[in-house]
Design a protein around this nucleic acid. Structure first.
Lengths: 181, 181
DNA sequence: GTCTATATATCGATAGAC
DNA sequence: GTCTATCGATATATAGAC
């Protein structure tokens, strides 16, 4: 069963946006890789921003769910431990790690993008609300870094030195340790 | 003693590149903030890329010095501890933290830029060579994250929640801890 | 050193045929 | 759903006067 065109556009766009940057990637390039003309893309997506929005939507939904869950819980070490396990599991779902990487590497270029602004806000709320109210600056930074470590791992080591699975397991261990008092 | 125009261009460019992104910032905007026309910039810098190169040069030189130093030392815990202290001290020097932030947030847009490619390579060598040859994946990720934590701290916490100095001290503590066995 | 004026290219987006 | 053709805006960069 063949993928539909909309999905293929998303895949090509995500790859090019991540490799080259959002602004540096033109719709012409995306269209060429797909084997159609630029105009054809506009049948599937209203604007270039719309492609980004479509990529981020599912991840944003998951993040908001995670935030709701966090708010229903006391700010205890146990909650934090469970949070990073849930966060890590979410990243393993289809495309999410790639999307997180794309967002992190194109923050400035996408400044002002409504869906992106929302994502960033949710992420900040997540890191702010995982620590107790009386946490020290060091604890706050440590907890926040635990989350970020989970999708930054890939860019920390030389390409090819470790497999994706090794990196995933390693960042998870490091993240758990960053939560310890 | 008034700053020369070349330096003012660098300052304005660094700020706008960081705030808005490299591609999203036009030479017209930089010129307008400076109070001159676009064409005047070309007297001071040959191209737009050239402005970036000039920003990165001093930081690249420092990084290469640090790499030479690291290579002259055994890969011991003591060397790693001294490395992050030196790295952190370097970041406090004029503009370097801002430049590091700009580079991190515009990696993709600047892909292919020769000076940037060199920077990224040096950074990867630094993280690769700070760990002993028999280090586990977890140790490698942990050590590399210690370095990155030093210039990522600012973006981990909600703006205004902590002062720059608090963040600096906190990231340094977290970094030291990431080096512990 | 800075200006005006312009060359040249590419971008996102649209109109309308098929 | 995809095409050709094109619009309008903006970009980097240059030429040459002052």
């Amino acid at each position: 069963m063949r993928e539909d065109t909309r999905t293929r556009i998303q895949e090509i766009a995500l790859r090019l946006f991540t490799e080259q940057g959002y602004e540096a990637t033109s719709l012409r390039e995306i269209a060429e890789e797909l084997g159609v003309t630029k105009a054809a893309l506009y049948y599937h997506f209203k604007t270039k921003d719309d492609i980004v929005a479509s990529l981020v939507e599912t991840r944003l939904a998951e993040l908001e769910e995670l935030l709701d869950w966090l708010r229903s819980r006391p700010r205890t070490p146990e909650t934090r431990r469970e949070l990073i396990e849930r966060y890590a599991a979410g990243l393993r779902a289809t495309r999410h790690l790639g999307i997180a990487g794309f967002l992190e590497r194109n923050q400035t270029a996408l400044r002002g993008h409504p869906t992106l602004t929302k994502m960033r806000e949710r992420m900040m709320e997540l890191t702010a609300e995982m620590s107790p109210a009386d946490a020290t600056p060091t604890e706050r930074v440590s907890h926040a870094l635990a989350l970020f470590a989970l999708h930054t791992g890939k860019w920390l080591v030389k390409e090819g030195e470790l497999t994706d699975e090794e990196i995933h397991q390693a960042t998870l261990k490091v993240a758990r340790r960053l939560l310890e008092p």
